[in-house]
Nucleic acid binder design. Sequence first.
DNA 1: AGCACGCCGACT
DNA 2: GTCGGCGTGCTC
Length: 843
Amino acid sequence: MSELLNFNYPPEPSTDRVTLFADVILPLPLPKLYTYRIPYEMNDEVLVGVRVIVQFGAKKVLSCIVADIHENAPADYQAKYILDVLDDKPIITKPQLRLFKWIADYYMCTLGEVINAALPSALKLSSESRIQLHPHYNPEEDELILAPQEEKIIFALNNNQALTFTEVGNLLQLKSYHKFIKSLIQKEAIIIYEQVSDKFSPKVVKKIRLTEHFVQEEGLLEELFNQLTPQPKQLDVLLNYLQLVPVHQDINLNYRGTEKSALTNNPHLSASSINTLIKKGVLEQFDQIVSRFPMEHGNQQLPMALSEHQLQAKDEILGLFKEKDTVLLHGVTGSGKTEVYIDLIKHALDSGGQVLYLLPEIALTAQIVTRLMKVFGDKLGIYHSKFSDNERAEVWQGILSGRFQVIVGVRSSIFLPFHDLSLVIIDEEHEPSYKQYDPAPRYNARETGLMMAHLQGAKTLLGSATPSIESYYNCKTGRWGLVSMTKRFGEAKLPEIELVDTRREQQRKNMHSHFSAKLLTEIEERLKRQEQVILFQNRRGYAPFISCDECSWIPKCKFCAVSLSYHKYNNELRCHYCGYHERMPHDCPACGATTLKSMGFGTEKVEDELKLMLPSAEVQRMDLDTTKKKNSYQQIISDFESGRTNVLVGTQMVTKGLDFENVSLVGILNADTIINFPDFRAHERAYQLFVQVSGRAGRKGKPGSVIIQTRDPLQPIFNKVRSNDYSTLYEHEIEERMRFGYPPFTRMIRITVKHADDKAAENAAIVLTKDLSDRLGKQQVLGPEVPYIFKIRNLFLQEIHIKLPRDSTNLKAAKSQIAQAIFNLKLLADFKGIRVVADVDPV
DNA sequence: AGCACGCCGACT
DNA sequence: GTCGGCGTGCTC
């Protein structure tokens, strides 16, 4: 794998002046690469994987990635020159380029789109047109006849030296500012230039140390003390510095100095005396580039020895890796998969490769990070969407430089510049959130992670308590190895699951709003015992819709075909698809009645009502609305962990990666909305969700219980959840998938046709379906059909589903047929403004 | 994706 | 009559 690090163009000692060309990936959705000429002086600097600056089109200056270097001069056009090289070493590795190519091909998008998604924007360059005064123009002397707006611009430029176009717009308070710029250019008062700026800035701290002088010569320090005795404040500063940096013990310590803030933050020291000492030349100030991540040295020890089951699982995995590249670890919730991962990561590091540990967004919590930090210390990099851009760029660079050998990260970490991977771990592999839906690339991090491992000769370990049917099928057919952990760690028991028939309870008047009497008593019971409760409701907001009692009016989104959800905390009606929101009306806009009623319920209502019914309980809600701020998520978790809150109400977020020892009850308020989902994966999903939520209950000796409220307790799925019977579920599901030709027996591609006009969308979809049927065969193409939500953001939707056979040669051909069909459709005059999106392996 | 060139309505 | 709308088409 290490050949991959050596990107240098073959070092031919030839004296011939070779003319080289570079094919570059522009960060734009363009179907092909563009060829630029490498200026001779840059021949040695332009390498595959570095960023270069080029001019694209009339004036746009962009940074892009070099994908290939060759000597083939383009025949039919004059290649422009590369303007500049930004990196002295590649920031994209060769295996990465191969992977990006695969992503673009497989998920039917452009390389530019992949690059765009992959690079932290701190590594992308922004080019913005700017204006400045014409070098020969002197506003004081040269008399030009200027419009008042033009005067204004010149005045601003005199003070600012440069303005961006948007700044000019703001300055003039005008949308149509262009003509003034044009006119000023004509009058030769200003010029336009393009500026490319590298946005990545390393973090710098101000530090302070003694000047060389005092350290080098013996005795000078003592002399200094005597000198400073009349200025006690300055002496204080010096003494404090020596306390922090005992230079008298080891003069070498002075070189690193101490952070200036360590002195300035000390209330006993005066800032002015610090500054005086700097002025006197006693102390000096310097900048040091530091990491945005705290350095922590892991003790390289497992925090706890593996249990017998864990050891056995680990050995089985390692054994299987000898013959197979991929292994699925099927371990019940609470079986301690994480410890097994940690052990395997250590194992992989010992043999000298890199490791990627993928987790779904909601499972990448401080809990897991702390655990990993303890073991891997500063070898561990974290890649999370909540990170700032500079932090992400630092992780990126850290992998390239070898500083990070293990990355724990979310979906997008598959884009990171690994070049020597030896192990990829994909935890919670069944998670649908590994799939990105919008925008392109519509990739699945599970499949992509597998491909990445394959390209770099690494092993892949997938883990789940509830594997996806596709993955389990791969084990059954022998392609992957399978390892099972059936026991919970520390002999903890799997939770007892109890069903409550809400329909029957309603008849018996046992329902208090959305809570059954049973659930309420059980919650009260836990509160009494100082234990904790998690309540799951798969819907945020207060109510999914409201309705007028008099006239049945229901508020709908202006842009989407959905009803607006009611959010009580800010008294708003909100669309969960486009974000449109309005104030909750006081009375019905249709009939004027004051009888607006909320229908159904979300997490907010659960929280609200529980607080009313059990006033002694400390209830906290965790969903998208309460975790928007950067630290709010962590706050909620730590409040629950410390016991400040007793009941946690939440959406999907509460189902993953959270281990709270004191949780003895989990309630699922409305199981029916989860089961009755019109999708071939609905059963699988429901099973996974129920098992995952249930898994939050009872760890370490305390048996937990789960209460599931449903109107239909006879659903067979409940028995499978109750008895933890994955294999029955699998057998049932795989049989259905075979019968109806769903994955894993086929590959699906979903084509969505969008248009502002519903008739145009429909007609275009019909035309496209016809064309696709002709190309691929009638039985492969289903639809078009109008999706359940038929309009989003003012675009009407039509869907076509394509089912393709599994083998990959046909797959490639089929995809190019599909791309052709879409291309042709867009050429048709009747459908201008049409948007077509292909989603490969939709989830 | 931008951004330029190019053909039709309301204004100095 | 022009300014300016945004509709197609190209960018190495």
